[in-house]
Structures are given as structure tokens and as C-alpha cells.
């Protein structure tokens, strides 16, 4: 039976005819315009926020939708950089980022690995118990009681300990470990490696793309976390950056009584400068990890 084979040579690489040598076809131009508009929609709020952060109040008051910079000032940034609460929030967030991410990674990786191994007693039961938490939560009040009984109120650990395992990330890890050949384990075992050696020396190095991806998920989650702080942290010096920012935005955006700004600054300018203060570190970090991020997601999604 003759195969329905199509020769690669016969496929035109570019449309022939009048525009055969043109770099872009009409469709490309349409796509380019659509994507350009989309890019503007994405980028403009950042641009506008940046302009507000470097504009004096009277310029912003005239129109909040600034298109071009005018009478630039760095007063808002000066004020933000002098704001002890933001720096304190930054320090706490860095602790969460380093300590929290390491802690979460440790538990997620070992759980994912254990659940990816051949059947052992109680594996399915444990897996189902973990899966249930993905669909059903205990609710706020039991969670509150749990935190109270663990004596975690007003402690930085309340933002770290409860998040040891994220089910979704653990499943990604487990799937990735499952996708690696079982023969590697068998070979290592023949060479005399024990379980821990197999995990550390064989599987862990191979799982680096997924570790980077999950690590990025956790890092971004920790960088953005504020909810536990809102509920359980009373001491302002323990508030993470995002919670400080949230309070600043809400008190700054609404015209509530008691909002105090220095004579050179105004609430919206401060809010926008603070937003940049919080997003710039993550924006700088993200591009370097993006390639792992995409690769890891795709690989982890192959096997369920």
C-alpha cells in the first residue's frame, strides 16, 4: 500500500507570485496590527501608571489618562524609598521568597516523587486525600481555628507553614517524575544505589526544568501573598510587601479621612510609585526563568 507521503520540497516556504519575495504577507500585516493593539492594551496601563508616578499632582488632576510625560518629578519615588513600611514589607517578602519557597519546594518535590513511584501500600488513599483538598476546602473558620491551635497568630510562620504543599504543583512534579524512564531506577539499583541516592543523584538532576517551573510558581505566589497576613498578622513590621501595598492603595485611592501625604506628593502618585517598587524586582527576575517555565509546563502536562 502506497503511503500518503508529502515531500517537504514541494511545500512552498513563502507564497509564490507577486509578493513571493516580500517579507510580510497581508495576513502578517493584519496579525501584526492585532498583536500591536493587544500589546498596547497590555502595556499602556503600565506606561500610564509610570507616568502618574513621575508626574506632579496638578498634571494628574487634569487628566488621569496621561499620554505624554510633563513636568517630571521623582518626589513620589523619593517618598516611597523613604517609607519604612515598604522596606520592612520588602524584607519580610524576601524572607518568604527564600525560606517559603525552599520549604514548599522541599515538601512538594519529596511528595511528588514518592507518589510517582510504583505502587506502595496506601499510595492511592494518600493521593486521593491530597486531591480532595484541590476541590473542597475546610473553609475560613476551621482554618482560623487551626492557625489558632497551632499558635501561629502574628508570627511570620503563618505565611509559610500552611502552604507546604500545593496540590497542583505537587501533581506537576509527580507527573514529571512519572514521565522519566523507570529503567533509570532499575539501573541505579543494580549499581547499588539506595532509595535516597536514586532520588538525589538520578531523578532530581533530571527534574530541574520542572523544579524551576514549580519554584517559579511558588516564588511568584510568595511574592504576591498577603491574605494570611491580613487575617493573622497584627504587627505592621511583619506585613509582607503586598499587604503594605494593598493598604497603601486602598487608603490612597479612596478619599477617606486621615490619608496623609507630604506637601510634594499625592496619593495616586505614591500608589503608582509603590506599585512599581513592588513589581520591578519580579519583572527583572521573570525573563530569566521564563524558558524553564514554558518547558516545564509542557513536559509536565504530557503524562497524567
Amino acid at each position: 500500500m502506497k503511503k500518503n507521503h508529502v515531500s517537504i520540497e514541494r511545500l512552498p516556504l513563502r507564497p509564490r507570485g507577486k509578493s513571493a519575495n516580500a517579507r510580510f504577507g497581508k495576513l502578517d500585516i493584519v496579525l501584526f496590527i492585532i498583536l500591536l493593539v493587544y500589546a498596547i492594551i497590555i502595556i499602556f496601563p503600565f506606561y500610564n501608571a509610570f507616568l502618574i508616578s513621575v508626574s506632579p499632582e496638578y498634571v494628574y488632576n487634569e487628566t488621569p489618562l496621561l499620554l505624554w510625560p510633563r513636568d517630571l518629578t521623582i518626589a513620589s519615588y523619593t517618598s516611597v524609598f523613604q517609607n519604612e513600611n515598604l522596606w520592612s514589607g520588602f524584607r519580610i517578602t524576601m524572607v518568604l521568597l527564600v525560606l517559603g519557597t525552599a520549604y514548599q519546594m522541599f515538601f512538594t518535590i519529596i511528595t511528588g516523587y514518592a507518589l510517582s513511584r510504583s505502587n506502595w501500600f496506601g499510595k492511592n488513599f494518600l493521593m486521593n486525600m491530597i486531591l480532595v483538598t484541590m476541590f473542597f476546602g475546610g473553609g475560613l473558620i476551621p482554618y482560623y481555628y487551626l492557625i489558632t491551635s497551632l499558635n501561629l497568630h502574628d508570627k511570620i510562620w503563618v505565611m509559610i507553614i500552611p502552604g507546604a504543599i500545593d496540590t497542583f504543583n505537587m501533581l506537576l512534579m509527580r507527573n514529571y517524575f512519572q514521565s522519566l524512564p523507570k529503567e533509570l531506577e532499575e539501573s541505579a539499583r543494580i549499581d547499588g544505589a539506595n532509595d535516597i541516592q536514586i532520588f538525589v543523584k538520578v531523578y532530581l538532576p533530571l527534574a530541574l526544568p520542572m523544579i524551576a517551573t514549580v519554584g517559579l510558581f511558588f516564588a511568584v505566589g510568595n511574592w504576591n501573598s498577603w491574605y494570611n497576613a491580613m487575617l493573622f498578622i497584627k504587627t505592621p513590621s511583619l506585613w509582607p510587601l503586598q499587604f503594605v501595598l494593598r493598604n497603601l492603595i486602598i487608603t490612597g485611592s479612596s478619599n477617606i479621612e486621615g490619608t496623609i501625604t507630604s506637601p510634594e506628593t499625592y496619593s495616586q502618585g505614591l500608589v503608582m510609585a509603590s506599585i512599581f517598587f513592588t513589581i520591578v524586582p519580579m519583572m527583572c527576575f521573570y525573563p530569566f526563568l521564563q524558558r524553564f517555565f514554558i518547558k516545564g509546563i509542557v513536559v509536565g502536562a504530557i503524562k497524567g
Partner: peptide, 21 residues
């Protein structure tokens, strides 16, 4: 001494009341 935040006042008080804390 500690403060409620304006935006989360209701959540914080109700959470503490219902959580007996």
C-alpha cells in the same frame, strides 16, 4: 496594640470573632 486595615476591617473582625481569637 494593633490596627485593623480600612479595607479588611470587616473580614478581620469577623474572622477573629468566629475564630474565637
Amino acid at each position: 496594640l494593633s490596627n485593623y486595615s480600612w479595607a479588611d476591617w470587616t473580614t478581620q473582625v469577623n474572622g477573629a470573632i468566629n475564630g474565637n481569637n
